[in-house]
Amino acid sequence: MLAAQLQPLAASVFSLIAIASLLLAFVMLGSRWLNDYLIAFAAESWLIAILSAAVGYYGHYPELYLIALLTALFRGLLLPYLMLRIVRRLKVDRELHERLSPSASLVVGALLVLFAFVVSSHLGQSLGLAGTVAVLALTVMLSMKLIGFLMLVVRGEALSQILGLLVLENGIFLGSQILVPGMPLLIELVILFDLLVVVACFGVLVRYLVIHTGTSSTHELRRLVG
């Protein structure tokens, strides 16, 4: 287990990056502007790329440099670019349909982080890892997961929902870099690729949505019930 035998410097670098990513998730939660979401998402992806490289350096996993490079390229550049194109096509620049105001969602988000912390410290204690960076990684992973679901629930704009799904994935990816850095390269590559396909599919679907229903808000989609 890497996280248990880290030098203090490495542990603090990892913690810093993990906490900064969590903060960026809160930036998304606290803003209405789609551009803010995109910038926060891109910054979060770059942080994860740096984390991969740092884990590769301190844990001696050279293949993680490749992952870091691809994460920066795919998640940091390509995905935000694809989504920027979607935003331009939509001609919407802000979230108009939230069910929960940004300030209220910040509070709910904070509660979710508390819940994630309780779960992860319980897990950490049962493994004898209490107080290590592993517990922090677990907390951030679960919090980003829950915040992603919160965004899916309270935001109605099509793009916010795609970003909500991507935050879910970012959370898993961030946690897995610290917890299981040795995960086979192939799996990580395929998951990265899979993400690209997901966003491409969403791009097509958003276009259909706008052309055939005349709206980019998923709150208008409420015909199918019962």
């Binding site: 679901f149 799904l165 879910l168 898993i172 599919c201 969403f202 949505l209 229903t213 989609l221 015909r223």
Partner: peptide, 27 residues
């Protein structure tokens, strides 16, 4: 048509979100 796009949107969002929990479990 409007309904089928709504169905597809729900399908991909709900299932991708749900299945990401399975990925977490596998990790």
């Amino acid at each position: 048509d409007r309904e089928s796009i709504e169905a597809a949107w729900k399908y991909i969002v709900v299932v991708s979100g749900g299945i990401s929990l399975a990925l977490l479990g596998i990790i």
